[in-house]
């Protein structure tokens, strides 16, 4: 459970840690958006180079990123199999009964893997280098224009930061309940699929009950400390835009121009 790297902040140092979280979020969005339009080996290669550069700048061990990819491996495999089997086209590389693997299918499958891994790693870099609270306040700041059309941005941001705050708590709680039920003989890894699905109930019920209780407690704790509205709250850490952010924007601009150029070369 604690091996889950996605969404986890890992303390460290370097330019990616100093950057404004807003910059990092925007960069991630631009990167992922562009990646959707990647259509050739060179564009993927260009994206991969950019990603590796970012990876190295975090100064974290590669093992950490491997652990980030591992939990979603099956998801990647599943998509790959779908791509392989249902892409159609010619030439056919391999056929066994109704199962047919074609060259476009194979190429698509490889593209899908690369795209998946790049997107996941880029978001992992964002969360590894940015504490959840910083992400929440960055999102609030980025959404500010929506206030004009009466979107309760401050409330949304507060809800988000509370939700993020609850993630490690719930993970700890899950671990604890899992151990308690294991001590009573729970086994999630044996039996039929139906049996396994049923085996999760003793885990989920206490988890939900506990989460609701915690939510009530938190609501009360906020009320007694005079919480009325999320609007107009001040911050402990103000966001500030610096030289590192300018550098980052230059980097992402270079990446974007290069990417577009490469995708037209084809």
């Amino acid at each position: 459970m604690n091996n889950l790297v996605i969404g986890q902040f890992v303390p460290g140092s370097g330019i990616l840690y100093r950057m404004d979280p807003r910059t990092k979020i925007l960069m991630t969005i631009v990167y992922v958006f562009l990646l959707v339009f990647a259509n050739s080996w060179v564009t993927y290669l260009w994206s991969a180079i950019f990603l590796v550069a970012a990876l190295l700048l975090t100064k974290q061990g590669l093992g950490l990123y491997w652990r980030g990819i591992k939990p979603i491996l099956w998801l990647i495999l599943f998509t790959v199999v779908l791509q392989l089997l249902f892409s159609g086209g010619t030439p056919v590389l391999f056929q066994w009964g109704a199962i047919k693997v074609t060259e476009p299918g194979l190429i698509n499958a490889i593209y899908v893997i690369v795209r998946f891994v790049l997107i996941v790693l880029m978001s992992t870099i964002l969360t590894i280098t940015t504490p959840p609270t910083a992400i929440a306040s960055a999102i609030e700041s980025l959404l500010k224009p929506l206030k004009a059309i009466k979107v309760p941005v401050a409330e949304l941001a507060l809800m988000l930061s509370i939700a993020l705050r609850f993630v490690p708590l719930l993970m700890g709680e899950t671990d604890k309940i899992m151990k308690a039920q294991k001590s009573r003989g729970m086994s999630l890894s044996t039996g039929s699929l139906m049996k396994r699905a049923k085996a999760v109930i003793p885990l989920l019920v206490p988890l939900f009950v506990g989460a609701l209780q915690r939510a009530l407690d938190l609501a009360n704790a906020m009320e007694v400390r005079g919480f009325e509205s999320a609007e107009g709250r001040t911050r402990y850490r103000e966001l500030s835009y610096g030289r590192d952010d300018t550098l980052a924007f230059v980097a992402i601009a270079v990446f974007a121009i290069g990417f577009l150029a490469l995708s037209f070369i084809k």
Partner: peptide
């Protein structure tokens, strides 16, 4: 490991949080 848990019972802190049925 599972058979061991039948031999060694574990009562955690605030065990009431494990009730589910």
């Amino acid at each position: 490991l599972t058979p061991i848990r039948a031999e060694v019972g574990m009562v955690f802190q605030f065990p009431e949080s494990q009730l589910f049925a």
